[in-house]
Computed example of a mutant assay.
Amino acid sequence: MTSHQFYLDELAQLVQGELIGQSKFKVAALASLEQAQAQDISFVNGEKYLQEAQASKAGVLIVTAALKDQLSHHQNFIVVDHPYLAFAILTHHFEDKVLKRGIEVTAQIADSAIIAENAYIGHYVVIGENCVVGDNTVIQSHVHLDHDVEVGKDCFIDSHVMITGKSKLANRVRIHSNTVIGGEGFGFAPYQGKWNRIVQLGSVQIGNDVRIGSNCSIDRGALDDTIIHDGVIIDNLVQIAHNVQIGENTAIAAKCGIAGSTVIGKNCVFAGAVGVVGHINIADNVTITGMSMVSKSISEAGSYSSGTGQFETNKWKRTVVRLRQLADVPLTKLVKQIDHMQAQIESIESTLKSRK
């Protein structure tokens, strides 16, 4: 493990914050408010954490100006407008990075592949014909790049990733263990009771600064490419089917499934276990709450839900019974009943007014 130690003035400069306290205070690590020790730095992300911050043993706190004035027990601060963002920036400087460069002797690389001199290719990596690996890219052990795959600059491909289907990755892409990029899409033509396989002839295009978690599948297109645009972040255990397009800076949480040929806009948020049917369009700036089922296109920005929140078990059972009973009543009958009830209410109100 690499040891990371910084002076306080160095850290303040990295996040463009105002330093208050000892400029040469030595910081050993980032830590939570609860676990921080005297040489650690932590952050206070809002007033609801003030009590924890007062009790924290952290040697340095990242705070806003308003919060700093309420923390009388501490002496060393970095004052910024957005403490959580400052914390995110500093994590990159405390991260243990793969600094080794070159190609391990157990790697198998086709003669036609082009590998940057300052890339790292780990043990038992297989790289096929006509592949390209860009500057400063790290490819960990047991990764397989099939023929004609291109990986850009400053990428990180974790162990046991498979990239196939002539996929193209831009710069600063991170892909975590056991993910498959460019696998065959789920395309079959039904005929006379049998499923006839459709060969998937498209590819996958992944933009800059995309992060893809572990155990994900992103299928290549049937004809057109599957496209993941710049800045998209994808959690673990996500399935993205063939020909899907995902707009810039969209976030997709774990266990989401997106069916084929769906187009998702920019700056969307999909919470955990959302399901999306195929061949629909979702506008920019749409949020889908957890375990929702998106069954038709969404044309306007906003938050959408279809899942049912938890009940105590007996209440849930009664609710299900009522829902089933409601489903058995024709909508026209319900409307007539409501109209009749409204007429009765109006009649009673009229009678009461006349008596006055």
Rank of each mutant, 00 (worst) to 15 (best):
L8R: 12
D9W: 10
Q16G: 09
L19K: 13
A29P: 00
A38Q: 15
D40C: 10
N45M: 04
N45T: 09
E52G: 02
E52L: 12
A58N: 12
K68L: 01
D69Q: 14
F87A: 08
H93R: 06
E95L: 12
K97I: 13
K97D: 11
V98P: 04
K100S: 13
K100D: 09
V125N: 07
V126C: 07
I127F: 03
D135L: 05
S141K: 06
D146F: 09
H147A: 05
K153N: 15
F156E: 06
S159P: 06
V161A: 10
T164K: 08
R172M: 05
S177M: 08
N178D: 09
V180E: 05
V180W: 00
G182V: 00
A189C: 02
W195N: 09
W195F: 10
W195Q: 13
D219W: 03
D224G: 11
D225I: 02
D230W: 04
G231P: 06
G231R: 00
D235M: 01
V238H: 00
H242P: 03
Q245E: 09
T250C: 07
A253F: 02
C256Q: 08
S261L: 12
G272H: 05
N285R: 11
V294L: 07
V294R: 08
K296F: 06
Q310Y: 04
T313L: 15
N314S: 10
R322E: 14
V329T: 14
T332K: 15
I338Q: 09
Q342D: 15
A343H: 09
I345K: 15
K356Q: 08
